[in-house]
Structure formats: C-alpha cells, structure tokens
Amino acid sequence: MLHPTLHAFGTDGFLIRFGEDLTQDANTAAITCAEQLQDHCGTWAIEITSALISVLVRFNPSEISPQEAERALSQFIDAIDTKSLETTQGRRFSIPCCFDPEHAPDMQDFCTALNMSRSQVIDTLTSCSVSVLTLGFAPGQPYLGLLPEAFFTPRRSAITPQVPKGALVSAVQQLIIYAANNPTGWYHIGQTPVTCFEPKATPPNMFRAGDVLTFHACSASELKQYEAQLSPFEVVHGA
C-alpha cells in the first residue's frame, strides 16, 4: 500500500502526496483522503482538494498555528486506515459523444499512434468506464482515466491552437472533456455536448474528482440536439 508523505506547500498549506507515479490506486487514495479530511479537519482547514496523486490542505493561520496544523495532519496520516482509501463513492454519468470525422479531426493520427483501428478505439472508449482523476487547466475541466495501457501515447509535438468546448481529447492514457475553447497538445478524437463549468450554477463545476464516466456514441445530428435542447446540466444523468 502507498505510504503518504507530508510536505509544506507555501507558508499556509500542506501537501499529502501518495508516491511519485500516477496509478489508479494513488489517485483513488488522494481523492478518498481528501474526502476523509473534509470530515476530520476543523474550520481551520479552509481548502481541501485533490490533484492526481496529492491532497492540498490550506489552513487559516489566524485559527491554527503552522506547527499545530502540521501535527494534526501527520497524526491523521499515521492513523489512516489504508484499506479505506481503496474505493471512491463517485457519482456515475453517461456521456454522449460524437466520433464522426468532422468532430474528431485527430482520430486518424491517434489510431496510428496507438496502432489500433478506429473501431477498436471507439469500442474501447464506449465500453470502459473512467473516473475523474482531478479538475484542472481550465475551470472545472476533468482529467479522466486511466484508460487501458494500450492507450499510452505521448502528447503531440504540435499544439492545436483551439479545440471547442466539449471536445474529447486523449493522450498519456487519459481523456479530457474541454471546459472552454482552448489550445491542446492532445489528440482531438470526439465531441461531447457537455458544459463542464457554468459560473451561474451552484456548484459551478459539473464533475468532481472520483465521479465515474462512461461514453456512448451519438450521431452529429443527435449531438446538435443535445447542444440545442438541453441545458448543460441535464445533458448527462447521474445514477
């Protein structure tokens, strides 16, 4: 089992890190650890959130001294039941995705990089489930994984200047649903109707770390209908 380490992060924060490699276990441990800390820490912890393999805890220096915060966190780590870090309680979402060529400009390159056929790629993506490893890069943008090892391919050397909001991109055994029109170094292999971040909604982010997503293929006209008819938060359904 992974042994977490405690690190200072700036003058008012600590990082609990699960190893130095990205594995599903390390990611699940980080997400679960963040959930447990929400219940464990007092109001002095003003921010608790997970990244791929670590948990950030910001403390309020007017409520607790750095030494006391460090002691509280290292006691928590020492007493942690590692079995309890092995599964997350994420919500489940089923996401429509259009893989038609006009919505998947990099699919051919992606298949070549993986040495797989287009139908093998789509079959795998629509039959496996991926979890939200973390949110980042843009507000509310989910990093999803891990895909089977056959999906390990480095980022592309060239940057695509812009992929649209909702784009499904892939590299390094992961998927991202783009939260906004932004550049990418990953392969653009599909298009979803999902709005990951809606500032007027509460909470503004559609997903949180630990949620589990599956994809099902839809046609270009169905994609258009989803985009036009449904408000962003009704496109997918939780279970």
């Binding site: 959130t49 910001r58 949110l135 843009a138 939260a179």
Partner: peptide
C-alpha cells in the same frame, strides 16, 4: 479568490 483551486481556478 479563496478556496477556488477545487474548481480548477
């Protein structure tokens, strides 16, 4: 902002 990192901000 405070406590915005969870949203990726």
């Amino acid at each position: 902002r405070r406590a915005s990192v969870a949203y990726g901000i």
